[in-house]
Measured scan of single mutants.
Amino acid sequence: MKVIFLQDVKGKGKKGEIKNVPDGYARNFLFKKGLAVEATPANLKELE
């Protein structure tokens, strides 16, 4: 799953980066803790 990092995550990505991460990791950790959002067209547009 492609995500946009909202904060630096040690060993995974830095704020503003767009990266592919495993689905479970994204849903169960990154999204729940507010560290990233899914890289949807709407979210990508907001990032610009």
Rank of each mutant, 00 (worst) to 15 (best):
G11H: 08
K15Q: 08
Q7R: 14
L6Q: 04
N20R: 14
K10E: 14
G16A: 04
G16H: 09
I4D: 00
I18V: 13
E17A: 06
L47N: 08
A26H: 04
K14Q: 11
K2R: 14
K2E: 10
A36F: 01
K2W: 15
K45I: 11
K15W: 04
D23S: 15
L47K: 07
E48D: 12
A26K: 02
A39N: 03
A26F: 12
E46G: 11
L35P: 01
E48V: 13
L30A: 01
N28K: 12
E46M: 12
N20D: 14
Y25F: 12
K19Y: 06
D23L: 15
I18N: 02
V9R: 01
E48S: 13
L47Q: 09
R27T: 10
L35Y: 13
F5S: 00
P41V: 14
K15A: 10
A39V: 08
A42L: 11
K15S: 06
N28T: 08
K32N: 06
V37T: 07
G11T: 05
K32P: 15
N20T: 15
R27S: 07
V3E: 00
A42D: 14
K32W: 08
E48H: 14
F29V: 13
G24M: 13
E38Y: 06
R27H: 11
K19R: 11
F5P: 00
F29M: 06
L6I: 10
L47D: 06
E48F: 13
T40M: 05
G34S: 08
F29S: 05
L30W: 02
G24Y: 14
K45W: 11
D23V: 15
E48M: 14
V21R: 00
L44E: 07
E46R: 09
K10V: 12
E46L: 14
N28M: 11
K2P: 08
K45D: 09
K19P: 00
K45Q: 11
K12W: 15
F31S: 02
A42T: 12
A42E: 14
K33S: 10
N20G: 07
G13Q: 02
P22H: 10
L47W: 15
Q7L: 10
M1H: 04
V3T: 01
L47V: 10
G24L: 13
K15N: 03
A42G: 11
F5H: 00
E38K: 09
P22R: 09
V3P: 00
K45F: 11
N20Q: 13
K14E: 07
K19S: 07
K2M: 15
T40R: 05
E48Q: 13
E17S: 07
L47E: 07
G16F: 09
K14G: 05
K14V: 11
K32E: 09
I18Y: 03
A26R: 02
K2F: 15
V9H: 02
V3R: 00
I4L: 11
M1N: 03
V3G: 00
A39R: 02
G34I: 02
F29D: 07
V37G: 02
L47Y: 14
K15M: 08
G13T: 02
F31N: 01
L35M: 07
K14R: 13
I18R: 03
G13D: 01
E17G: 02
Y25P: 04
K2D: 12
N20V: 15
L30G: 00
K45N: 11
T40Y: 07
E17H: 05
E48I: 15
I18E: 03
E17W: 04
L6K: 06
E17V: 04
P22K: 09
G16E: 02
E17N: 04
G11E: 05
Q7W: 10
E38H: 07
I18G: 01
G16I: 00
G16N: 08
A36S: 02
L30M: 03
T40S: 10
K12Q: 15
G13K: 01
V3H: 00
L6Y: 03
F29P: 02
P22G: 08
M1L: 14
G13H: 11
A39L: 09
I18W: 04
Y25E: 08
F31W: 03
N28E: 13
P41F: 11
A26T: 07
G24W: 15
T40D: 06
N43V: 12
E46Q: 14
V9K: 02
V21D: 01
L44A: 06
A36I: 06
K12T: 09
G16W: 11
G13I: 04
T40G: 04
K14A: 10
D8Q: 05
A26S: 03
L6T: 09
G11A: 03
G11Y: 07
D23Q: 13
L44G: 04
N20M: 15
Y25G: 03
T40V: 06
D8W: 08
F29T: 07
D23R: 13
A39M: 07
F31H: 01
D8G: 06
L35H: 03
L6N: 02
N28L: 11
F29I: 11
V37L: 12
K45R: 14
Y25K: 05
Y25S: 04
V3K: 00
E38F: 05
M1V: 15
K45P: 06
K33W: 15
R27G: 03
A36R: 01
G24H: 14
A39W: 11
E38W: 07
E17Y: 03
K33D: 08
K14N: 09
K14S: 09
D8S: 09
K14F: 12
P22I: 06
M1T: 14
L44N: 06
I4E: 02
Q7I: 11
A26L: 08
G34V: 04
K10D: 12
E38G: 04
A42Y: 09
L6W: 02
T40W: 04
Q7F: 14
L30V: 01
K45A: 15
K10R: 13
F31P: 01
F5E: 00
I4G: 01
Y25L: 08
A36M: 01
I4Q: 04
G11F: 07
A39E: 02
V21N: 00
N43D: 06
V21W: 03
G13A: 12
D8T: 10
N20S: 13
K32H: 09
E17L: 02
K2A: 12
K12L: 15
D23E: 15
D23P: 13
N43M: 11
K15L: 06
P41M: 12
V21T: 02
E48P: 10
K2G: 04
Y25A: 05
G24E: 14
P41E: 13
K45S: 10
E48Y: 13
A42V: 10
P41H: 11
M1G: 03
G16S: 06
V37W: 06
D8V: 04
V3Y: 01
